[in-house]
Design a protein around this nucleic acid. Structure first.
Lengths: 197, 197
DNA sequence: TGCTTAGCAATACAAATGTATCAAAAAAAA
DNA sequence: TTTTTTTTGATACATTTGTATTGCTAAGCA
């Protein structure tokens, strides 16, 4: 057997190189050559781990989605419901540098996926699963009588989901201006308007 | 003097060709050749109207921004304040096919501008001017005593702005699923929660 | 009628790109 | 040590890309 190389690890290294290029130059800057150089390996090496550029992009997109998903799933579910929700949102919205990086990468991939049949299903799947998360939140809140009476849970879930994604976009577009506290404050205000005191 | 050709009109034709390609194939599909073909003219012709590809892209982005801006400015300001606001939002959010097209194009350009120093200022300018629109709305509402008491107008402006941009993104990502009435309903619900009855 | 010049089309060219091929290198297994 | 096989690097190639050049066309002006 030849040199022992952790196949999956190498693939993740390449995906992370893709991410760095996306942040620096956008998806237009991602070529097989630029990625290989960024990852410090040769073109032939990259080709050994990914049969095509689109396979590399699909994997890179999938990986960032998985990382976010895992981080969300590993959140402690103690604390009161409201704290749980704010912790969850804090994993989505760009409150710190890491989250900002992820948001930039995710926006780039999502936009790209709009016209790439190969990536679009994945993009939609992530979007839908996040929508379901919001649905669950509100159904649980309603059952626990924590929601103000008379609210349409389905509509409120969609409204909150849109607000959170809007904050994510604004955090990326105006990252020097939109402060983390601002985002947190808006989320807090929204929850105040929905939950019983 | 040679053949009389409306210079500006030709440039707009080319910009519209760019838009069609963006909708169909994304910004990656926009090359000087594909645009020339889409517009039904030769490469040399295109070059005659735009010195470079980035000039073409900058103009195309500027033009879509101007068209939206003009449409917003030409809105009748009669009707009660709430109707004015809903009419304004209706010009931003993808409630019909034309608005959906504009949203798709705008998202593509905004994402592209994140890493293109030449386009970024324009993107920020549009973002900021829309932010000011929301600010004005809420300041006017507050002065007219139409806002529920105790609201932070600055924060509410940002919250509404984020919600609207989030709805725009969701309308584009899930255009087959997110219905126009849904979007309108969410906006209406949000205004209900802010305005005095 | 001829002249001037904006508009246009064709061609060229270097650079970058995705993909393919192939042989060398390296390390485990025999 | 020899064999085997994954890993790696180099090179090649056809396409596509942005840009530049050059000459032709056509329409208004003298």
């Amino acid at each position: 057997m030849p040199k022992i190389v952790n196949h999956e690890e190498r693939r993740e290294q390449l995906a992370e190189a893709v991410w760095r290029i996306i942040r620096r130059e956008g998806l237009e800057g991602v070529s097989v050559r630029s990625v290989a150089e960024e990852a410090g390996m040769s073109l032939g090496s990259l080709r050994h781990y990914f049969d095509s550029q689109s396979a590399l992009l699909a994997f890179s997109m999938q990986l960032v989605a998985e990382r976010i998903k895992k981080r969300i799933q590993s959140l402690p579910q103690d604390g009161d419901p409201r704290e749980n929700i704010e912790a969850l949102i804090g994993q989505i919205v760009p409150l710190d540098e890491d989250r900002l990086a992820e948001s930039q990468i995710w926006i780039a991939f999502s936009t790209f996926a709009l016209t790439e049949p190969e990536l679009r299903p994945l993009s939609r799947e992530i979007h839908d699963s996040l929508r379901d998360v919001f649905r669950n939140i509100f159904e649980t809140l309603a059952q626990s009588q924590l929601l103000k009476p008379g609210l349409d849970t389905e509509l409120e879930a969609k409204r909150f989901h849109a607000l959170v994604d809007g904050l994510l976009v604004h955090g990326v577009i105006a990252s020097e201006v939109v402060l983390a506290e601002e985002i947190a404050g808006i989320v807090a205000r929204h929850l105040d308007s929905l939950l019983v005191p």
